[in-house]
């Protein structure tokens, strides 16, 4: 076989499922062990994604949601929605999936040292942001204040509940969680994620915001950040688009002049603001 073919980024490599964690009734986390190619370990940056292949069914682009330092158990938190994710949801420990990646750029975790970090996550948007938190915790002293504002639909839809609980007990991170609605059993905040800004004070020139969630939620969040005086160039967001290749060749993920898969999925807001405000980009 020609060597050129073996490194073809379109070819998935089998990866063993180490563990399946059901986060909610329709969202689960697959922890997989990537095969190391020629002794090269699988390394990724927070915000990158993999293309996961369900044998014979197809592929889905899934953000990596684990600690970048844990290279032998790569987590993917997946919302069961389509054919591929439904098939992935049926797999168990010891089964194999195909994996291509990691693709895309990441959050500017290293470039924003010394700053306060305000992480705003909506729904499953917390998945690509979790590696940011792990990275910050590994180098906690190199960052200023850390805020995590997280919104979900109902308390049952909250992901990573055990970790949220642990993090909220830490003194060096301010964790605020809200749900859109609930019954009386939930004692936390109720209301949209943007409401949570009322409970924190941001040092405007010293804060980097990282936002991920449904596009409308990000739009509202950016407006809120802007209203609170955060300069637009300090806001980063992660976009979702249809992806077939993950390497900028298939054309599906175009967002104006950007290929979300290779130029993103993380963008500085100012890179995409012109198109972000338009419909059907």
């Amino acid at each position: 076989m020609n060597s050129e073919v073996c490194i073809d980024p379109m070819i998935p490599l089998p990866a063993r499922i180490q563990r399946v964690v059901w986060e909610t009734d329709d969202t689960f986390t697959l922890l997989v062990e990537p095969k190391s190619e020629n002794g090269k370990r699988f390394q990724f940056s927070p915000g990158q994604f993999n293309m996961l292949y369900a044998f014979g069914i197809g592929e889905s682009a899934i953000s990596i949601s684990s600690d970048p330092l844990k290279q032998n158990a790569i987590a993917h938190t997946i919302h069961r929605l389509g054919f591929v994710t439904s098939e992935l949801s049926r797999l168990r420990r010891g089964n194999f999936i195909g994996l291509r990646g990691p693709f895309g750029n990441g959050w500017p975790v290293d470039r924003v040292k010394g700053m306060d970090i305000c992480i705003v996550a909506g729904g499953i948007g917390i998945a690509p942001l979790r590696p940011v938190l792990y990275s910050i915790f590994h180098n906690r002293k190199e960052y200023g204040r850390i805020f995590l504002l997280y919104g979900a639909r109902t308390p049952l839809d909250l992901l990573y509940r055990v970790e949220l609980e642990q993090w909220s007990k830490l003194s060096d991170i301010n964790v605020l969680v809200t749900v859109d609605h609930s019954d009386s059993s939930w004692k936390g905040h109720i209301g949209v994620v943007t409401n949570l800004f009322s409970y924190i004070t941001l040092n405007t020139l010293h804060t980097i915001a990282m936002v991920c969630g449904p596009e409308i939620m990000m739009k509202f969040t950016i407006r809120e950040l802007q209203q609170r005086g955060i300069p637009l160039e300090q806001i980063y967001l992660s976009l979702e688009r249809n992806m077939k290749c993950g390497i900028g060749l298939c054309g599906h993920c175009q967002f104006g002049p950007k290929f979300v898969c290779k130029d993103g999925p993380v963008f500085a807001y100012t890179q995409v603001s012109h198109f972000f405000e338009k419909r059907e980009i």
Partner: peptide, 18 residues
């Protein structure tokens, strides 16, 4: 105004299951 904005976002039910 804050409540109105929040209500609109809430109405959109952005995390709704498909």
């Amino acid at each position: 105004e804050q409540h109105l904005k929040a209500t609109r976002l809430q109405l959109l039910d952005v995390y709704k299951r498909q």
